[in-house]
Design a protein around this nucleic acid. Structure first.
Lengths: 213, 213
DNA sequence: GTGAATTAGTGAATTATTTCACGACTTTTC
DNA sequence: GAAAAGTCGTGAAATAATTCACTAATTCAC
């Protein structure tokens, strides 16, 4: 059996990418694929791909490559694609709205179930078929949801994170520039759009010729 | 003098984060800070912070820490905060609109100068004070801009990237799920929101107690 | 001024990740 | 059915990044 604690984090971060790509191949009706093809398409070294897959056992066949459906089925189980993970979204601004209109459930095992905002003019609406509640109702509405997308103004980030954690949230995708502080059983991934843009510009200037990611 | 080729990429990715944080300290009127304080606030090990800074020379003082203004000034120069990098945005959907309304120039050396979309109902408008042009005008309007934010539908990603590169773009911040193919003097950073969310969920399940990223 | 406390900078160790390169096996070609 | 081509899986090497742990310098408290 696969020991998930032995899977390098770098590998784990690539799994959703692999999954989606395999899903596309499946939809295209392709039934086999080699690590080299995957490498060209996903810009990940082919040895890295083979190594990544190998943590889960021998999934391919020498001289042949990988069977798309088999691999896809395997990742589906591994990434728990069969059970949907419910998510709440806090902060229905521009970015929040973009998420609500983004159809995550397709190709994905996550679904935004409820959205919250402090602005009364947004409360009660449905955006992308998701109901918007007032943040005051957070505690009573959150139910058994343990994942939150945080797209609030930066000043709200920490207080809102505290409330979310108090309500049982264990994972936060934080789009605010604030580096929030959480207990160590709560996982936070930061995505800072300004930092990403600035980082791109810096890399363009100083590492002009290599391919990085 | 600092040899930029010797700066680890992992360090380079943290620089914009450092910069912003120092800027906040500066605004708060703080004039000194230790690697330990920075560590607590930014969730980066203090030894890592000291190591990162040390690539740029001895910026601190033993027993004292770092002088906020000095460090900030140093990073300002290093990250070229003084000259603004112009950026174009392609695809004025929900996510694109979020970017246009996001005030990057504050705390940042980048500025979205022009936006493009194929939808005639969006062309001619101003969003977040940025003019929206029709994509057909891309080549004549792009001028000397070398950085693009790509927030178009996935099917448009590669063709649009090709056009951008043809027009002289050297850096693309790609928010589509497509892994675009580019010549090796063009830098692409991918940010895949669905992958990020899925990755968070995966890490929550399999690495419940450690702090990552 | 003196001793205690603080803190940067860094050599060395450790840990993590990627990549090379090759044996073993499969498929394809003719 | 034999030879050629393709491809995985992986040991080992290489590279990258983090962290430990200590020295030397400085500040702080009194």
């Amino acid at each position: 059996m696969v020991n998930y604690n032995k899977i390098p984090q770098a590998t784990a971060k690539r799994l959703p990418l692999y999954y989606r790509f395999l899903n596309n191949l499946h939809i295209q009706g392709k039934d086999r694929v080699s690590s080299k093809e995957l490498s060209n398409a996903m810009k990940v070294d082919s040895a890295t791909i083979r190594r990544d897959f190998s943590y889960f056992g021998a999934l391919g066949k020498k001289g042949y490559g990988y069977n798309v459906d088999y691999l896809l089925g395997f990742f589906r189980k591994t990434l728990d694609q069969d059970e949907n993970t419910p998510v709440v979204l806090i902060g229905v601004g521009n970015l929040g709205t973009a998420f609500l209109n983004y159809n995550f459930t397709k190709n994905n095992n996550t679904k935004i179930e409820k959205a919250f905002d402090a602005d009364p003019s947004k409360v009660g609406k449905k955006i992308g078929n998701i109901q918007v509640y007032h943040v005051d109702e957070l505690e009573e509405q959150i139910g058994d949801i343990h994942v939150a997308i945080l797209t609030v103004p930066v000043a709200e980030a920490q207080p809102m994170a505290d409330r979310l954690i108090e309500s049982g949230v264990k994972g936060i995708l934080n789009f605010t520039p604030a580096r929030i502080t959480v207990p160590n059983d709560v996982r936070v991934h930061h995505i800072d759009l300004a930092v990403e843009l600035q980082s791109l510009v810096y890399f363009m200037k100083h590492y002009p010729l290599e391919e990085i990611e």
